[in-house]
Amino acid sequence: MSSLNKSVPAAQGASLAKGREPSLWQRMMHPQARTAYLFLLPNLLGFLLFIAVPSVMALGLGFTEWDGYNPVKWTGLSNYVRLMQDENFRIALQNTLLYTFGSCLLVIIASLSLALLVNQKMKGMSLYRAAFFFPHIASFIAVAVVWQAIFNPTLGPLNMFLGKFMDHPPGWLISSDWALFSIILVSAWKMAGYYMLLFLAGLQGISKELYEAANIDGANILQRFRNITLPMLSPVTFFVIITCIINLFKSFDLVYVMTGGGPGRSTKLLVYDIFVQSFRNSAFGYASAEAIVLFLIVLAITYVQFKGEKRWVNY
């Protein structure tokens, strides 16, 4: 420990001897601190330029008009005023909320069930796990391309199969009633394996003694699930819900390839509209305002989650 104390920049030893704290500059120029900044430098420079500065700029660009070529023009709140009256935006917002919460619910139910299933001792379990996880490895583009063919309403294998049981199987991606639901299904199918692994890690952290004690007390499966598994898993569930919602708000690839926002505007999501407004219609300022609204929604949901955490997350 002694050598570590010597090199700690807080330098308590020095302050005791001189009777005052070293200044911030002195602490920053301490040999260990200097070494630390050198280690940080390559990443920090890139991080500041390409991530931190753009994050700050994002706030400002929402108040401007910019077509990508001419100088940026300050327009105050007008983008936000326009957003409030824009029906496109309202529909995109509705679709995004429906898509995010619909998929998130499905993902959580599916991934928790899968995790419970693969947390048993069984022959071939590693194969089952790999199979459940497999859709996560493939790119969203590959998945979109394959499912688009499967969903083909007249010729696709899915409706060929369903056609044996019903006269009018759904139109899936070409029906404005079914398209968003189809995208929700594919998202949940692709993402469930990933969150299964998170839940599995959580389940493996639950002490066996708890279940043994419950067995002695004669608790049945449902009671064990409700009173041991769910509460012990709550920190993982909390993490899963937050990351899942953020990931779903970002989903772009499926809609871009499978529907292009259609039919009509039925699968137009906020992130898709931001892309179209900026990189297709050159309305970068307006799209930035939309992006800020997206950010505020994600922030609000995360905040509510953290506030509610104390009520249901156990430790």
Partner: peptide, 30 residues
């Protein structure tokens, strides 16, 4: 390693990892 500003910088990194790509994609393009 220890250095002044460590916690603040780390919080900055952590916050960045929660920001959706689409929020910074336009300024990044800039």
């Amino acid at each position: 390693l220890d250095f002044p500003g460590k916690n603040r910088l780390f919080i900055m990194y952590f916050a960045a990892f929660m920001i959706p790509y689409q929020v910074i994609m336009i300024p990044q393009y800039f």
